[in-house]
Amino acid sequence: MSFSLYEAIIPTMIQMLNAGQNWIENCKSCGQSEDDLAQARLHEDMLPFAYQVKSMVVHSVGAIEGVRKGSFSPDLEEYPVELEKMRLNLGAAENTLRALSKGEIDSFIGGETRFVFEQKGIDIPFASEDFLLSFSQPNFFFHATTAYAILRMKGLDVGKTDFMGRLRIKRD
């Protein structure tokens, strides 16, 4: 059985983006202030919840855009702090990924994508598939896990099945 780059990345990102929208929906009725949640951190030297949510979008849709352009740079724009805006951004990213074709994603194999962070003098060449699998996908999961952990730390009633979202089960 062959396994494609598309199948290795896109369906799971869609699953997690959808789960993230549900986490945020749970935030709306948790009794905590929107600002308190948006600015919550696991540790003082880590970026806040709102940044973690933004980074899920950056390392999914933004990564695909970077591969298309052949260059990916950190998104240094401000991140939204309103829960509904965060939820909508995750939803827009999910919809964008759903619209991608398997053929386009698989056509990235063998291409080149550079990670460029000019302010720090960083320019790292990757094969496009390695950029997606070894850089963006781990970053995506780091930020998703951190966002979820922040919500757990803040006392939200979400568990492992909430983190995982809707599983892609075999249908007879």
Rank of each mutant, 00 (worst) to 15 (best):
M1K: 09
S2K: 15
S4L: 12
I9D: 01
L17I: 08
Q21C: 03
I24K: 02
S33K: 09
S33C: 06
D35V: 09
L37C: 12
L37W: 00
A38C: 13
A38Y: 02
A38H: 04
R41A: 06
R41W: 04
L42Q: 06
L42C: 11
D45M: 12
M46G: 11
L47I: 11
P48Q: 14
K54P: 01
V58G: 00
H59M: 09
V61Y: 01
A63I: 03
A63T: 03
I64A: 05
E65T: 12
K69I: 10
G70R: 13
F72T: 02
D75A: 08
Y79D: 01
V81P: 04
L83W: 07
M86D: 00
L88Q: 10
N89G: 11
G91H: 07
A92S: 14
A93M: 10
A93G: 07
E94P: 01
N95L: 13
R98N: 09
K102H: 10
K102G: 07
I105V: 13
F108H: 04
I109N: 14
I109A: 14
I109P: 05
E112C: 10
R114H: 14
R114L: 08
E118C: 11
E118S: 15
Q119S: 15
K120A: 15
K120N: 15
D130C: 12
F131W: 06
Q137L: 14
N139G: 06
N139Y: 04
F141K: 06
F142E: 00
F142I: 00
A144S: 12
A144D: 00
A147D: 03
A149V: 03
L151K: 03
M153N: 15
K154T: 08
G159V: 08
G159Y: 06
T161V: 13
T161F: 13
R166G: 10
L167Q: 12
L167V: 12
I169R: 11
I169S: 12
K170L: 07
